[in-house]
Write a protein that binds this DNA or RNA. Sequence first.
DNA 1: AGTGTCCACTTATTCGATTTAGTGATGCTC
DNA 2: GAGCATCACTAAATCGAATAAGTGGACACT
Lengths: 315, 315
Amino acid sequence: MSKESRATLKDVARASGVSTATVSFVLNDTPGQTIPETTRDRVREAARDLGYTPHRLARALREGSSRVVLLKLGDLRPGHSLDGFVTGMRHELWRHDYTLVVHPGGADRAALAELVATLAPRAVVDLARPYQGDVGDGETEGSDGGWTDGLAAHTMTQLTYLAERGHANVAFAVPGEAAAGGLAALRLRYAREAWSAVGAGDLHRVSVATGSASTADALRNLRGMHPEVSAVAAFDDEAAFRVLAAMADLDLSAPGDLAVIGFDDGPYGALWRPSLTSVHIDGEGFGRQAARAALGIEPQEPAAPTSVVVQRGST
Amino acid sequence: MSKESRATLKDVARASGVSTATVSFVLNDTPGQTIPETTRDRVREAARDLGYTPHRLARALREGSSRVVLLKLGDLRPGHSLDGFVTGMRHELWRHDYTLVVHPGGADRAALAELVATLAPRAVVDLARPYQGDVGDGETEGSDGGWTDGLAAHTMTQLTYLAERGHANVAFAVPGEAAAGGLAALRLRYAREAWSAVGAGDLHRVSVATGSASTADALRNLRGMHPEVSAVAAFDDEAAFRVLAAMADLDLSAPGDLAVIGFDDGPYGALWRPSLTSVHIDGEGFGRQAARAALGIEPQEPAAPTSVVVQRGST
DNA sequence: AGTGTCCACTTATTCGATTTAGTGATGCTC
DNA sequence: GAGCATCACTAAATCGAATAAGTGGACACT
């Protein structure tokens, strides 16, 4: 393992008295090759003794791509179910002898191209892709294992909760800045669809910006025009916090004046005052699916991973 | 650029009427090689026309390691100056024709080993290393470009602010859970050193845990034993939020009853009520230094990148 | 006896770039 | 005009593994 000299195929071949080809056949279980068990054992033992590990770069050069899957996160911020997604994906890939490389970078196209060129990954999974209209350069691409479909289901979870608690007219809070971009539009669309299925009244849209003053304005405006709105479903926990902060400025309190529910249960929800009810998403299951999709393997667990509401003080 | 056939060195050689060796010499500006400008131009033009890009895997195989630097984040959570650090590091590496790969994983040794084996990076920078006693396997390692030294300076910034605002006796809030581990101990040590240099009175330690009840207990306890404490400096913003949450439970308000200052200015500080004063750190400068250190280049900017206090409502 | 079929392997090529060790031609010096 | 250096290159080895195409021997079948 140390620096001075790692064992190569050739070393193993020499040690076991066969050619490198035979060693390769044995270690890779290459089909269509007739090699007696005794020889196989000899080779495998030699490999073990020498601590042989295939040189991934050499293999990748020969095979045309390395056993790496690149995950591009885009603008998605962590602290979300994303962590679980990554963990799940890493695990499933590992089971198939692949490695996950995560690229957090957002819009920087050049950095991604660099990375793709350097790693020559087997597949690139872009979680942000579904939210952008354009398809990019059409390079190596991969499915997201149902992440987007899941989004619709989780949005449904969020709004069903409000409907069941007796709220008829609600608002959906989307971040004001462009960063959230297509994702916000998508979530809003899903929210509308969900509400028309489970809700009794209307679903309005509030934009919550970074400056708390403008959010307070938006909120006051909403309550002026639609006093019947009794709950807010937020794009994510941060958007929910903005709503709560603006409410504090307006001397409103949750859940009395307005119930607030976040999305994707971040670490701060339990700390806020009032503590924030949110939707907790099982990212790991999706991560595993995404891994299988990237490698072109059949999906394994047809039971769709689910989301649940974590109830706290804000509703 | 598309899939069917990328140009290789050989193609460029054929197109410009020289051997692959010459092409390589020209494109890499190999020193000690006498090649007339006319030939060089011919080669470069052919390379441009064919859209030649060196195959990184092949190059890495030959050179023994790929032009990649692996950054291991350990337990450090984003939303901190860490983002800037990564950006700065990526940029500086890019200038030297290197690529940054970020490994967010925490304790998972196997995953890191996988990654190192797969990428064969030129260097591994482990930001968590300085906080752990052990030195690991002693594989490829790299300095952190003064990140740890900076920590001492930033802690000084945090405590100097409190001293200048007239606080004599303060407490330092560290997270209760093991996750923060060595980093918390390090910060505390730096805080003690800082306070003995700039503070008038004592520096106490409060442990803030995940459950808000226990944090409230700790806080009540502290105020019982040391009623003269007038300010809390927190390990990070999250620890500060825990203090603020516990204060709310105890019917105390900041900054009246207790001033609170966070560390590493996260995105939620401005949203909290009261909004949180924090220390903003210039991560990019450190990232650039770390990049240069990893490549073994002389540091460029001797002027140490600095930290500043962002003042908000909690102090 | 000749042909064919497995078996158990090996040889040699390939992936694409880097680099060492040349080689033929020219010019310069003594 | 012999000796030597310099120029402008090239041939071939190398990195480590994967694999297509053999190769010699044992055995069966007709």
